[in-house]
């Protein structure tokens, strides 16, 4: 059963300038245990979409189902009860600034009528879980951004949710802190089996933790599927654009540029995933065709926990077996891509 199911969601906002369609016929199904990324440029509607999942925004049209239950059929009270099982964290943390860390974590429990003593017991455990046992009495203003987000995560976990919604949770953090927060989210997903929805504009975030991803543009989902597939063969222009802005891709582009400067032969980019990494494909190819190829660059990337290898090969300038070699690689399920001298990757 889907943990979260969205069917034909439309959302329009009435503004002074007329109405704005934030979401346009969005359908999405998120399975239990997924870490599902929703990525898009700002204004693509992803924040509105995630708010539809807990009815902070009520869709103008369409159906939202959590664990098979339709939200539109719930009374106010039932909806609030349901929200207790859907944690949410935000870009700007949204902690109570006048309350200390422990009171912040207790807050959702007190709303639910848990006694102060039990709430505090639970909060202390959660604070350990997010790695900040010594900060119980600190106030949010005394914490760094990363620490604030850890407190926010502990707070979101207090009511033992089944789902955790993350709205640009790492966008206000530096890359290192981002990685540590993502690592924490991954652990939470693994250990507690919580389904996580990650809203972001950074492809690197998706690459690091999401197993599935949907790409949004102008209120619509243009592409959705496993992270690996989308990273390997982005179909839409938006996906390619987002991949280009990935920090790692940036660094890679630079390397290729340098490579281009020193050589000039015909180049091929090949991408292989775990199953083909066991066979010495390149070595075998060279033996079979009896012609050397130059390995200009080789790297492996961790995409959602799956090792993905990437190489840039250069054929001999005089090679006449180029096409046969390409066919050979394709047979072995290796993705290939021609690179001409100046093309950006």
């Amino acid at each position: 059963m889907s943990e979260i199911e969205l069917l034909h969601i439309n959302k329009t906002f009435e503004t002074k300038e007329g109405h704005v369609q934030a979401l346009n016929d969005v359908s999405l199904s998120i399975e239990t245990g997924d870490i599902y990324g929703i990525i898009g440029m700002s204004g693509a509607g992803k924040s509105t979409l995630v708010r539809c999942m807990n009815y902070l925004e009520i869709p103008s049209e369409g159906v939202v189902k959590l664990q098979g239950e339709e939200l539109s059929g719930l009374s106010d009270r039932e909806l609030r009860k349901k929200r207790e099982k859907v944690g949410m964290i935000f870009q700007h943390f949204n902690l109570l600034m006048q309350k200390n860390v422990i009171d912040n974590i207790c807050f959702p429990l007190l709303i639910q009528g848990v006694s102060k003593k039990d709430a505090e017991k639970r909060a202390v455990k959660l604070l350990e879980k997010v790695g900040m046992p010594d900060k119980a009495k600190a106030f949010p203003s005394q914490l760094s951004g990363g620490q604030k987000q850890r407190v926010a995560i502990a707070r979101a976990l207090a009511s033992e949710p089944k789902i955790l919604l993350c709205d640009e949770a790492t966008s206000a953090l530096d890359p290192q802190t981002t990685s540590s927060i993502l690592e924490l989210l991954k652990n939470i997903n693994r250990e507690l089996g919580i389904t996580i929805v990650v809203i972001t504009h950074q492809m690197s975030v998706v690459r690091q933790i999401c197993n599935k991803v949907a790409i949004m543009k102008e209120g619509q989902i243009v592409e959705a599927g496993s992270t690996l597939d989308i990273f390997n063969h982005p179909k839409s222009e938006v996906a390619r654009e987002l991949l280009r802005t990935d920090v790692d891709a940036q660094a890679e582009k630079q390397v290729i540029q340098e490579v281009n400067d020193i050589t000039g032969g015909s180049k091929l980019r090949i991408i292989y995933s775990e199953n083909s990494a066991f066979e010495p494909v390149i070595a075998n190819m060279i033996l079979k065709f009896n012609e050397p190829v130059n390995i200009l660059k080789a790297a492996t990337k961790n995409v959602a926990g799956v090792a993905k290898g990437e190489m840039i090969l250069e054929f001999q300038r005089t090679s006449d077996k180029k096409d046969e070699m390409k066919a050979y690689l394709k047979e072995r399920n290796i993705e290939i891509e021609e690179l001409d001298g100046r093309e950006e990757v």
Binding site: R83, V86, R155
Partner: peptide, 20 residues
């Protein structure tokens, strides 16, 4: 944002007034 966070936790209007 803090009000929204409270809503996302299932807080009702009265709780948000008195506790947030």
């Amino acid at each position: 944002g803090v009000v929204e966070a409270a809503k996302s936790m299932g807080a009702g209007t009265f709780t948000i007034i008195t506790k947030v």
